[in-house]
């Protein structure tokens, strides 16, 4: 099965997503910044889904998407943005995101929906 990469500088956000996904036996990798994510993508060609935060030190979410879309193979790997603000949604879609999730108590359900769509 392909791996899922979760990119967020907040440990708390990362852990709660990993926690909810690994309970369903998905193989989840973590990255703490865009730069870290690029390295993890290089090391793990079997990553099939990326979930990324926007505000991060050392390469933010939008820069990461731009990098993936122009350098990664396959370039159309699904990348979802997880954001704190509602209003950024449509904006990130224009910048190449496959979709977005707004951080809320429903995040976990949304996440499962997305993961099932792409991984099963």
């Amino acid at each position: 099965m392909k791996k899922i990469l979760i990119v967020d500088d907040s440990e708390m956000a990362r852990k709660s997503m990993c926690f909810s996904l690994s309970s369903k036996r998905y193989n989840v990798l973590e990255a703490v910044s865009g730069r870290d994510a690029v390295a993890k993508l290089k090391e793990n060609p079997d990553i099939g889904l990326v979930i990324t935060d926007l505000n991060m030190p050392e390469m933010n979410g939008l820069e990461l998407i731009a990098h993936i879309r122009s350098n990664h193979k396959p370039a159309d790997i699904p990348v979802y943005v997880i954001t704190t603000e509602n209003k950024t949604g449509d904006d990130v879609m224009k910048k190449g995101a496959t979709g977005y999730i707004v951080k809320s108590s429903k995040t976990s359900e949304e996440l499962h929906r997305i993961v099932e769509k792409h991984m099963v």
């Binding site: 500088d9 907040s10 708390m12 956000a13 709660s16 997503m17 935060d53 505000n55 030190p57 704190t84 707004v102 951080k103 809320s104 108590s105 995040t107």
Partner: peptide, 14 residues
Amino acid sequence: GEIHTLKGDSRMIG
């Protein structure tokens, strides 16, 4: 930076 993360984190757990 810190407050933004706190905002996101607290949303995540409702």
